[in-house]
Structures are given as C-alpha cells and as structure tokens.
Nucleic acid binder design. Sequence first.
DNA 1: ATCGTTACATACGGGGCGTATGTCAACTCG
DNA 2: CGAGTTGACATACGCCCCGTATGTAACGAT
Lengths: 194, 194
Amino acid sequence: MATRRAEKMEETRQRLLAAARVAFAEKGYAAASMDDLTAAVGLTRGALYHHFGDKRGLLLAVVTEIDAAMAARAHAIGQQCGTLWDALLAEGAAYIDMAREPEVQRIVLLDGPAVLGDPSQWPSQNSCLQTTTQVLRRLIADGTVRAVDPEAAARLINGAALNAALWVAASNTPEEVLPKAQEAFRVLASGLLA
Amino acid sequence: MATRRAEKMEETRQRLLAAARVAFAEKGYAAASMDDLTAAVGLTRGALYHHFGDKRGLLLAVVTEIDAAMAARAHAIGQQCGTLWDALLAEGAAYIDMAREPEVQRIVLLDGPAVLGDPSQWPSQNSCLQTTTQVLRRLIADGTVRAVDPEAAARLINGAALNAALWVAASNTPEEVLPKAQEAFRVLASGLLA
DNA sequence: ATCGTTACATACGGGGCGTATGTCAACTCG
DNA sequence: CGAGTTGACATACGCCCCGTATGTAACGAT
C-alpha cells in the first residue's frame, strides 16, 4: 500500500505537534512564531498549513492530544480506587496535580479557552469532563450522590479543581498552598454526598 | 487647579475605555485592532499608548473596571440577604448570572487569564474573590462553615461558579441549563456547612 | 508674553499570518 | 517500465498590526 509515504507524513505531523507543544508552553499561543516553530524541526510554514490548516488548527490538535492524555491518566488513577466515590476524589486530586504542569496550564487552561472557546465545545469534547461525568452518573445511580444533573456537577467539580490548580501554580509557595487546595476540594465535594 | 485640562483628559480616557470594552467583547482581544478601536472614538493610537502604555495595559484597565463592577453588584446582592450563608449562595448565583453577559465572559473569563495570567495575581486582586473570601472568613468564625482555608474555599467556589456560567452561556439551550447549574452549585456549596 | 510641559497625532520599522504558486518525489496505470 | 498525476512541502508575496520615535499645538506657570 501507500505505506512509505504515509509513514513519513505521519512522522512530520508528530514532529510538528511536539514542537508546537514546546513553543506554545514556553511562549504562549500569541507569542509563538510559526516560522520559528517549524524551523526548529527543520521544516517551513508550508508543512504546517498543509497539515493543520492554520495556527488555530495546530493549537486544537495539541490541546486534543494533551486532553486525551490527562483523561487517560485520571481514569487509570480512578480505577485503582476501592470505591467509586474515592475514585472521584482521586481524579479531582489528579486534575489539580496535572494542572500544575506548565504545559497543561498554559496551553489547556489559559490559551485553549481564549482561542478555541469554551472547553465543553471542543471537538475532543473535553475528555476530562466526560470521565468525571461518567463516574458521577454511576454514583448517582447507586445512591451515593444526591440526585443532581451529572453534567452540571461534573462541570462544577472540574472547574473547582482546575481553578485550584491555577491558584497553586501561580502561588509563591506551592508546597504550602497545595494541601489547602486539596482539603478544600474534598470538603466541597462532600456536599454531593446523599 | 489644572482642572480644564485634567477634565478633558479624563474624558478621553473614559472614551477609550468604553471603546475597548466594546471592541474586546465583540472581536476578542487578539482580533481587536487598536487603530480601529481608537478611530471609533475619533482618536489615534497615540492617545491610547499615552494613557495605557500598550494593548495589554488597556485590557488590564478594562478588566479592572469590570471586575470592580461585578464585585460591587455581588456585594450589594449579598447585603440584602438575611443570613451570611444565604449571602454566599446569592453571590455565587449572581456570579453565574453575570458571567452570562458576553462582555464579562469574553473579556474577564477567556481573554483576561490568557493575556494577564492567573486572576488572583491581577492588580485588581480580583475583587470578586476578595468579597467571597471575606464572607467565608466570617462564616467560619461564627461556626456555620467548617474550618477550611477561606481563600482556598473561595477560589474553588468562584471557580465552580464561573465555570458553570461558561457552560450555561455556551449551551444551546441556556434556559434549560441555568437551573441545573444553580442547583448543582447549591448542592456543592452545602459541603462547606459544619 | 514667553517658555516648558504634555496630550495627542504622524511616521517608521519589524514581524507575523495566511495564501498563491512552484517543485520534486512517490504512487498509478497502461 | 515509463509517462502522467497526485500530493507533501518549500518559496514568495501582500496585508495587517503592534510598538516606538518624532513632531506639534495647546495649556498652564511665572
């Protein structure tokens, strides 16, 4: 089949994606130059526009990739918990933790919403949100959690966690602030219990 | 003394601010042209850079203004409540409501954080956050709310509310979604009660 | 009345994005 | 096996926009 060609093409796509992650994370979306970014991996803007359409398309691809990785990681952590409720708390803590990484923070939490709009409208559908919603739905079904709209609760929980993470990361003393944030998260989440 | 001059100067400052609010809200920060913006009120970029330093400075001024207005409005609503706890819930609901306005959403929630960084680091100190923190401090003191870090709890509460608002506004059917969001907010907040 | 200050306009340079066009290698098919 | 076609990527161009340096005219002080 057309393997040789498609193979190489996929490789350049990945190289561009990787370079974009670094550039967007370090300089931010607006300040990242497409010329510099492509040159860093030995290509030109031609390749970029061929693969991703425009600068925004590139950001979308990067965000989708990171979002999927986050959701997978959170899901894996949740799986290791004895009860579903513990899984929910653990996933929340995981989000707070992940959002401390500069790459996640800058790209997914700050530039992502500004450039691509509300996360729930992204094509990736915000996998993180989906994961949390699923867990909540089951918790409501088995009576652990009060009867609220699962999607609404998931959005609030996620928003709280991500906001907490932003706070921790921007703090001068993250080590002191992190436990406070996690404790507050647990207290707040307990409001959902039946 | 130097009133005539200072008076006029203040007026042009306000005109620029007003034009910026409109432009940033309608086109978004990145797509808003400083040339167009200033021309819309019969001035040039010269005036703008004289008053605000740069494009970012203009956004900061706009954000500060809106933030102050939001905090004032929330505070006023809280004052009308019988108990402090009701005030907290009412303020939360007010934030959800205010964040539905396109101006607030686009400027304060989306572009603000992306361009200016984490809201808690803004010079305006995010008045909204301050207000909520104050109320929480008093609620903890009088034993209504469990002993958590007030700032942490305020950040989470605010994050949840604002995220909910983004969700409502981006939804296709805001009327259906709004009550779900408000209900979920109340349930979540109840976790703070002692 | 003169001079310094300052609010604002004009002019200039640099850079970045998107697109139109070119090129060359890889696959297809007779 | 060779000619044609497709497609991945490079090159070239125009446009817009930001920030700054420079100019100017009005206002206030002395």
